[in-house]
């Protein structure tokens, strides 16, 4: 079984994004970019499935600018076998990403697509579910455990009520949550080896997908700032303050 792993190049997880003064978006100029953390977990899970013998090949795919090749090289250095970049400088919305991935799935015929549950830039949490709908596949979202047996996969999902387990017929989509695994670091020899692994570049037009946006961002602004509070010196003061504010009886 082949596993397809979509990865996205996003602002580094440790950085605090700054809203541009003109309100057109978030300033990404000269900002460190990395692989979306949920996608790192997806790459790791695919590699573990391969190491366990449940998968034979791991193919990473990214949709984005030429620089997204760096993100794909990271996936290759972690251990993915080859990579595909669908190159575009346009903002691609989740629905269009799902359509591009649908076209890649038609070419590659994977048995599973494992991807992050959301990207930490637009926080949409849509692409996996949309891809599953377009393909008519089952979806195991927010996964904290993935168990492949024969032609089905059991996915334990982190849901509001606790942990839910569903069984999906393969092929299927799995989207990863935080506690699925801890992604490995790429070793230096593997980083060197990744440079010679195959990386194919395509364009959305090659795949016949219309990526015209459906949403228009009118403005991006800073969130409202909370007013500075007070520091108290003792538990007595804390209790008195809370009573004064009416926060406790």
């Amino acid at each position: 079984m082949k596993i397809l792993v979509p990865v996205k190049r996003v602002i580094d997880y440790n950085l605090k994004p700054r809203v541009k003064a003109d309100g057109t978006g978030v300033d990404l100029a000269n900002v460190k970019m990395s692989m979306n953390p949920f996608d790192e977990i997806a790459v790791e899970e695919a590699l573990r499935l391969k190491e366990k013998g449940a998968a034979t090949e791991v193919v990473a795919v990214s949709i984005g600018p030429a620089k997204a090749q760096e993100t794909l090289r990271t996936a290759l250095a972690m251990g993915a076998d080859r990579a595909i970049l669908v190159e575009t400088d346009a903002e691609v919305e989740p629905l269009a990403v799902a359509k591009i991935l649908q076209a890649i799935v038609a070419e590659e015929a994977p048995g599973m697509v494992v991807m992050g549950k959301q990207a930490i830039d637009d926080d949409s949490n849509q692409t996996g579910q949309m891809l599953a709908a377009l393909l008519g596949w089952g979806q195991g979202t927010f996964a904290s455990k993935v168990d492949v047996t024969g032609d089905s996969v059991a996915v334990t999902r982190e849901v509001d009520a606790g942990l839910e387990t569903v069984s999906l017929k393969l092929p299927a989509i799995v989207t990863t949550d935080l506690r699925l695994n801890e992604p490995r670091y790429a070793s230096l020899p593997n980083i060197m080896k990744a440079k010679s692994k195959p990386l194919a570049v395509k364009k959305p037009e090659d795949l016949g997908v219309d990526i015209a946006p459906r949403l228009k961002v009118l403005k991006v602004s800073e969130p409202p700032v909370r007013k500075a509070g007070v520091m108290v010196g003792s538990v007595d003061e804390l209790v008195a303050k809370l009573k004064e504010m009416g926060a406790v009886a």
């Binding site: 989740p94 949409s124 949490n125 849509q126 579910q129 709908a133 979202t141």
Partner: peptide
């Protein structure tokens, strides 16, 4: 925007060929 809503709504959006707005 619960785990149930987030699981179902994008699948509905794709079936309708519309872009969802999240959260």
């Amino acid at each position: 925007a619960t785990t149930t809503g987030k699981n179902v709504a994008p699948r509905v959006a794709a079936l309708l060929d519309v872009m969802q707005l999240s959260e």
